[in-house]
Structure formats: structure tokens, C-alpha cells
Simulated scan of single mutants.
Amino acid sequence: MADCNDSFDTLYAAVAAAGLGETLSGGEFTVFAPTDDAFDALFTALGVTPDEFLARSDLANILLTMFYLERLTRQQLHP
């Protein structure tokens, strides 16, 4: 997840909280990642704080739905 910018701080925090940092540190994959603004909207919709969300026991499973275990190009996504 090296090619990110400041709009993904919550995603980085979630990956760390879920213990997925090492798992996701190697290899090539595509991430369909929500921005910080999208996470904030989710927290509001769920009525939870970021800390409550990051403490979920199923956080790793939620996050892994955002990862595709191959690198996809723009052409593959938008033929």
C-alpha cells in the first residue's frame, strides 16, 4: 500500500488495527479503498466512533473484501 496519499489515513489505521500490515506488505494487488471521507460517512451511518469501528472483531474480514490479489490496470477496469 505504498502508493497512497493523505486521503487514506483511516485505511492505514484499520490495516494496522486488524493486524494485516505484514500480510499486505508484499506482492502486487489492487485495493478498492475508501477515502477518509468515505470512512467518516460510514462511521456516521453506523453510529460508531472510529475507535469502535477499528476494534471490531471482524475488521480483518471487512478489509480483505477491498483487496484483489492481482494488480489490475485502468484498462482492465475500464475497457
Rank of each mutant, 00 (worst) to 15 (best):
residue 79 P to C: 01
residue 34 P to R: 06
residue 20 L to C: 07
residue 7 S to Q: 12
residue 9 D to E: 12
residue 15 V to R: 00
residue 23 T to S: 10
residue 7 S to I: 03
residue 58 D to S: 12
residue 40 D to W: 10
residue 47 G to S: 09
residue 78 H to Y: 12
residue 34 P to T: 05
residue 15 V to F: 00
residue 71 R to T: 08
residue 18 A to T: 00
residue 64 L to N: 04
residue 1 M to C: 08
residue 5 N to C: 08
residue 20 L to S: 01
residue 56 R to D: 06
residue 25 S to V: 09
residue 2 A to M: 14
residue 47 G to P: 08
residue 65 T to H: 10
residue 74 R to T: 06
residue 20 L to H: 07
residue 46 L to K: 14
residue 63 L to N: 01
residue 16 A to M: 12
residue 10 T to I: 06
residue 24 L to H: 09
residue 79 P to M: 01
residue 37 D to P: 09
residue 24 L to D: 08
residue 23 T to P: 10
residue 25 S to R: 13
residue 65 T to F: 06
residue 19 G to D: 12
residue 34 P to A: 07
residue 43 F to P: 05
residue 1 M to K: 04
residue 55 A to L: 03
residue 6 D to M: 15
residue 33 A to Y: 03
residue 29 F to C: 10
residue 21 G to D: 08
residue 14 A to I: 02
residue 60 A to H: 05
residue 6 D to S: 15
residue 5 N to S: 15
residue 72 L to M: 10
residue 70 E to R: 15
residue 70 E to D: 10
residue 23 T to W: 04
residue 35 T to R: 02
residue 23 T to H: 09
residue 22 E to F: 04
residue 62 I to D: 05
residue 54 L to S: 03
residue 32 F to H: 13
residue 72 L to R: 15
residue 76 Q to I: 07
residue 62 I to F: 05
residue 63 L to D: 00
residue 72 L to T: 08
residue 19 G to M: 09
residue 45 A to N: 11
residue 33 A to E: 09
residue 28 E to N: 11
residue 56 R to A: 07
residue 39 F to D: 00
residue 33 A to N: 07
residue 50 P to W: 04
residue 29 F to Y: 14
residue 71 R to S: 14
residue 42 L to N: 07
residue 51 D to L: 10
residue 64 L to P: 00
residue 24 L to M: 12
residue 62 I to M: 13
residue 69 L to G: 10
residue 78 H to E: 13
residue 51 D to V: 07
residue 58 D to Q: 15
residue 18 A to L: 02
residue 46 L to P: 15
residue 61 N to A: 11
residue 39 F to H: 01
residue 51 D to Q: 12
residue 10 T to F: 02
residue 11 L to M: 08
residue 64 L to Y: 01
residue 41 A to S: 14
residue 65 T to K: 11
residue 52 E to M: 02
residue 28 E to F: 13
residue 40 D to K: 09
residue 49 T to F: 00
residue 54 L to D: 00
residue 12 Y to N: 07
residue 57 S to E: 12
residue 51 D to N: 07
residue 58 D to P: 13
residue 17 A to F: 02
residue 7 S to C: 12
residue 72 L to H: 06
residue 72 L to E: 06
residue 54 L to C: 05
residue 15 V to M: 03
residue 66 M to S: 00
residue 29 F to N: 07
residue 9 D to R: 14
residue 61 N to K: 11
residue 3 D to I: 02
residue 42 L to G: 04
residue 55 A to V: 04
residue 13 A to P: 06
residue 60 A to N: 03
residue 27 G to M: 07
residue 23 T to G: 04
residue 25 S to W: 13
residue 71 R to M: 14
residue 63 L to P: 04
residue 30 T to R: 02
residue 48 V to D: 01
residue 20 L to M: 11
residue 15 V to D: 00
residue 47 G to K: 09
residue 31 V to I: 14
residue 28 E to H: 15
residue 10 T to E: 00
residue 13 A to L: 03
residue 13 A to K: 00
residue 8 F to D: 06
residue 68 Y to P: 01
residue 72 L to W: 10
residue 77 L to M: 07
residue 49 T to I: 05
residue 58 D to A: 13
residue 61 N to C: 08
residue 9 D to F: 07
residue 17 A to W: 00
residue 54 L to R: 05
residue 28 E to V: 12
residue 31 V to Y: 06
residue 43 F to R: 02
residue 44 T to V: 15
residue 56 R to M: 09
residue 49 T to E: 00
residue 2 A to Q: 15
residue 8 F to K: 05
residue 44 T to S: 15
residue 26 G to C: 11
residue 79 P to H: 02
residue 31 V to R: 01
residue 21 G to Q: 14
